[in-house]
Simulated scan of single mutants.
Amino acid sequence: MNQIRILVIFLALTATVAGASELEGAWELVSGEYVDPKGELIDYQAIEMKSLKVISGSHFSFTSMKGDEFWASGTGTYAFEQGNYTETLGYNSFGVKPGGTFSFKSKVEGEYWYNSRWEGDKRVEYEVWQRIK
């Protein structure tokens, strides 16, 4: 019985590491949209949103620009398991307290990474990232 428990724990840890390593590297935002505080859908290309995200085995960091102006930055830890990507913020420029989280339905297909964030049954953010070579 103990051998089965050890195997289950090992497989769970291996799955977590495999998912995390799939994201490791540098990513550039290529398209997306979000719902603003007024409830309007904003296309990232329309506002000239640019962003880079760097992911290590356990941490993420991003910086975003709106045109030539600074927009936002954040860093912290993340988890990527079973199609769910969750960022836990340590530091950020947009007023979320340390420990705040953002969770996305997520998938990687080739060099593209797709994220969608939901509040209830409403999608409030969608991102398409491309791995930087």
Rank of each mutant, 00 (worst) to 15 (best):
M1A: 12
M1E: 14
Q3P: 00
L7S: 10
I9T: 15
L11N: 05
A12M: 13
L13P: 07
L13A: 15
A15P: 04
V17F: 14
A18T: 09
A18V: 10
G19W: 03
A20R: 09
E22W: 03
E22I: 06
L23F: 08
L23Y: 06
L23W: 01
E24W: 02
E24F: 03
G25D: 09
G25N: 03
A26L: 13
A26S: 15
W27T: 04
V30D: 06
V30G: 05
S31R: 15
S31C: 08
S31F: 14
G32L: 09
E33V: 01
E33P: 07
Y34N: 07
Y34G: 11
V35P: 03
V35W: 00
D36L: 11
P37C: 10
G39K: 14
E40T: 12
E40W: 04
I42M: 07
I42S: 11
D43K: 14
Y44P: 00
Y44H: 10
Q45W: 05
Q45V: 01
Q45M: 10
A46N: 15
I47A: 04
I47H: 03
E48F: 12
M49F: 05
S51V: 02
K53N: 12
V54D: 00
I55T: 03
I55R: 02
S56E: 06
H59P: 01
H59L: 08
F60R: 00
F60T: 01
F62Y: 15
T63D: 02
S64I: 01
M65A: 10
K66D: 10
G67E: 06
D68H: 14
D68I: 13
E69S: 11
W71S: 11
W71C: 04
A72I: 00
A72L: 08
G74R: 00
T75C: 12
T75Q: 11
G76P: 03
G76L: 02
T77S: 12
A79H: 05
Q82G: 09
Q82H: 14
G83S: 13
G83K: 06
Y85H: 06
E87S: 09
L89R: 08
G90P: 01
G90I: 12
N92A: 05
S93T: 11
S93Y: 06
G95T: 02
G95I: 02
G95Y: 08
V96H: 12
K97L: 05
G99P: 01
G99C: 02
G100Q: 00
F102V: 08
S106G: 10
S106M: 00
S106N: 09
V108A: 09
V108Q: 07
E109V: 13
E109I: 07
G110H: 06
G110M: 09
G110C: 12
Y112S: 14
W113N: 02
W113P: 01
W113A: 02
W113D: 05
N115E: 14
E119A: 10
G120C: 04
R123A: 09
E125C: 02
Y126F: 14
Y126T: 10
E127D: 13
E127I: 05
V128C: 08
V128D: 03
W129I: 01
W129H: 03
W129Y: 07
R131M: 08
